[in-house]
Design a binder for these strands. Sequence first.
RNA 1: GGGGGGGUGGCAGAGCGGUCAAAUGCAACGGACUGUAACUCCGUCGGGGAAACCCUACACAGGUUCGAAUCCUGUCCCCCCCA
Length: 410
Amino acid sequence: MMSYIPRSDFLHVMTTRGFIQDCTDLEALDQALLDGVVPGYIGFDCTADSLHVGSLIQIMMLRWLQKTGHKPIALMGGGTTKIGDPSGKDEARQLLTVEKINENMAGIRRVFETYLDFSDGPTGAVQPNNADWLDALNYVEFLRDYGRHFTINRMLSFDSVKLRLDREQPLTFLEFNYMLLQAYDFMELNRRHGVGLQMGGSDQWGNIVNGVDLTRRINGNQVFGLTTPLLTKADGSKMGKSAAGAVWLNADKLSPYEFWQFWRNTLDADVAKFLKLFTELPVEECDRLGSLAGAEINEAKIRLANEVTALAHGADAAAAAEATAREVFEKGGVGEDLPTVELPAGSISVVQLFVQAGLAKSGKDAKRLIAEGGAKLDDAPVTDAGLMVDLDAQIKLSAGKKRHALVRPA
RNA sequence: GGGGGGGUGGCAGAGCGGUCAAAUGCAACGGACUGUAACUCCGUCGGGGAAACCCUACACAGGUUCGAAUCCUGUCCCCCCCA
């Protein structure tokens, strides 16, 4: 299947940049994309008030879809989030309140606004909420009209279900229904917006195929599914953790500087891949940068960090992050963009200083850091865990070589 | 409804009356090496305290013991088999 060389701009970009894991019918989709505007959607759970790098590949895909002349649809799972997708999870997620879901939706909207163009027009992005149609469903009617198109036999064969059963983890009937609702979403979006394509991670394959089938049966329309590979780092670990935890795309959840650092610390072997997926640099340039040898690849990582940060937070934020990073790491100095905490002026213990600055999880953790020689105050190692510090000017704190923060008297 | 198994630190998974803040592995963190890599190696890894030491913890609530993650009772939850 992948030997087929697509002619449409969108699929050309997707294949050459490594976005595609699987497609229900690559050739037919290619033709549809050539024939006219294809509205395509990706569903997002509203489990948090922001999205993180785990969703970035999907976001970039929507962005490319729009850039290549089609209509991106970021579907908010306001309805399905009430249920919880069992895919790839061992346990049912805790159910969120409707208020929390709506709040999360607003935060996610802010992410999309930086990546997509929401203006009116045939290729303007839209962000519908599936609660708009799912909430109104009548149980018995739904079962009669749609339930009959799903066999338990087939549903049990899906990985998301099998995995749970094999691992002897409970799968509730509530979650079991998730896939029906997601299939219904596709059909409904096809009906409402003429949506012809659903994209998602490879873990969504089963759900997507169900939607393709249901849309064909109910609406009589051929629609397509496209999945992205599961992203892992070259060392096999999961992508998406920074020193500060999840790598959020909203600046109020993770500062642009820390976001920049996350990309700066990409593994050598991942540089080319990440450049293709997360930046819009020409493919040849991505390959060239990724193949730089030895210490030279550091410049490629800086380029990667700059490009990705510019997309998420703007070019100015990226430049500021880079300036701070160069100041801190290359000159051992201080940069404005370092995480900063304001504390009441006066006497405070070093231990508290590290805890308050977020460089230590607890006092115990801070003491450990000091005992191990990893704690520094204005670049001077802290040797006495009982040290009292007089906070009357800005102090630079360091935990190890990479984590730095500033503390200022309020 | 009946029978059996089980709930331990971020996760996985030992322990089955004291020497248990709890083996081991993974993750995480610090150090050496380096390129703010990778690999490897060393160390740390419940909370408070400068420290001696103290506190909270092995689903929850009681109980037996000088002493319980380990025994007993009740409650909740999970898994498997039968009906």
